[in-house]
Amino acid sequence: MRHFRHMVCVFAEWSLMQFLFEPLNIARHRNQRWSRPVHFGFASDIKLVPLTFREVHRAAHHFPLCVCRTSAGVSLVAVLAGEDGRNQHVDDEGRWTAPYIPFAFRTHPFRLIASGTGTSLVLAVARDGATVHADGEFAFFERDKSISEATRAVHKALSEAEAGNRELAAALLQLEALDVLAEVPAEKMGPWLRRQRCFGVQAVKLRALQAAPPESLAGLFAASPMAMELAEIIVFSHRTVMKMRRAQPDRTAEVAPGSLAEKDEAAQAWSFRRKEVDFLDYGDNLTFDIE
């Protein structure tokens, strides 16, 4: 029993508690097969999913990203839930509707879990009748009792992701040290957030960092490049646009025929009414503008 309690504890953070994960075992899984998930109903109540190092850029195009602090440490997570706390990317028939499926779901029913002694990670399989059954696509074990090629491939992918995640975790700690994060208020995402601790990049803090002297920024970047890139990626995922609220005159003024200079000089010469935000803010951003 102690062994199982430990396994559940590892995954409690990510709300996959509806499944019990058991270490892959010849006695337990020899006569069973597994299938890749087609239906994602099991994810319909999952609000946050941790991302792997390799999928950060791709995921940023489809989900808002946040830094999540749990008892297990810091993780970069994709926010899946809407205001009602339901995963917005799974429909009533259990189909995944977003163009990208996070790695954690694609590798279901497998996970790496801490071994009984806690010194290493072992491949574990969910007790999930939808993906683990006698008629599944792939065997867990070959007839000679060796692990099947398909199962080995998933194990390899999970192990590589785990190795990359150590780099990601280090970058997240560096991101915290840059002091650009702030806790996302529950009203930004929904009441369900009160049970989580999610951090986004706060615009005002990021601007302070951006305004640092170039030589200081270069030093920071040399020490923690991934952290600074992550700050940009998180902001990008929230589709926050930089709003430049310069004072605009009420009416159009004519300028010297057809000429303008750049930036500061241009501020004098150009005086058209439309503001930057008219062109750059499409109204679907600022979800986490927690300024």
């Binding site: 159009t252 303008l260 750049e262 930036k263 241009a266």
Partner: peptide
């Protein structure tokens, strides 16, 4: 005005 404003923002 819209088009010239876009040009100004681009130019800046």
């Amino acid at each position: 005005d819209h088009r010239l404003s876009a040009l100004r923002i681009f130019a800046e």
